[in-house]
Amino acid sequence: MTKLRLDGVVKRFGANTVCDGIDLEVEAGQMVCLIGASGAGKSTLLRCINLLEPIEEGAIWLDGEDISIPGLDPQPVRTRIGMVFQSFNLFPHMTAAENVMLAPRRVHGQSRDELMPKVEELFRRFGLGDRLHHYPDQLSGGQQQRVAIVRALAMRPEVMLFDEVTSALDPQLVGEVLDVLRVLKEEGMTMVLATHEMGFAREAADKVCFLKDGRIVEEGPPSQIFGAPEREETRAFLARTLK
């Protein structure tokens, strides 16, 4: 079943075309990795999917429903699509647990008491058991990013978007966040990642898309993209990043 489909998505900032006719299909439970040089348009594409940016042309379909109709209220769609950012973006004036509970409380009207057991459960599962009442600046980068993931998961999204979620982390903290992504894949979450972790993409992705100048130059299973890329641009990019 196709969970998410992009049809010729075009995004411009003024005269600058950042996404230039993107077609993409994501099956339910799939992990799709977007790779490409910085400035290729990976972040912008994810922001468009989450309706943080309006698109100029094309359409985005979630479960067969066009979510890119101009004038459509983006709010209900955003509750169905979770997003995690490179810079964590936790709310610094709230504890980890408050960060996680804010949206379920305000959007779904759930109470603190009914949420707390679920939040504790999520924290335990991702190795954050004793960090519930810490403020973001009392947590390591890896812990902050795991709280940000839990915060998005608490809305029970159908799709998760990850924008270079390990790029701001010290190398020794990258692994703990990638482990979380592996668990989510195991549980059948549908995910789209922009990433520079080529090893992880090769091992865990179902599909890899190579972006250049706002276009998907080549896509396919990781074995093809990393093992036998067909396009010259892909080969050049991989040669540059992998050594």
């Binding site: 989450n50 955003r78 509750t79 936790l90 709310f91 804010l102 305000r106």
Partner: peptide, 25 residues
């Protein structure tokens, strides 16, 4: 702006983004 984006991506309405995320900071 990333604070607003994070709050919006969680599905918070604009008035809640202002009240619970932007204004306190």
């Amino acid at each position: 702006a990333s604070q607003r984006a994070a709050a919006q991506s969680l599905g918070l309405r604009d008035k809640d983004v202002m009240r619970y995320v932007i204004l306190p900071q």
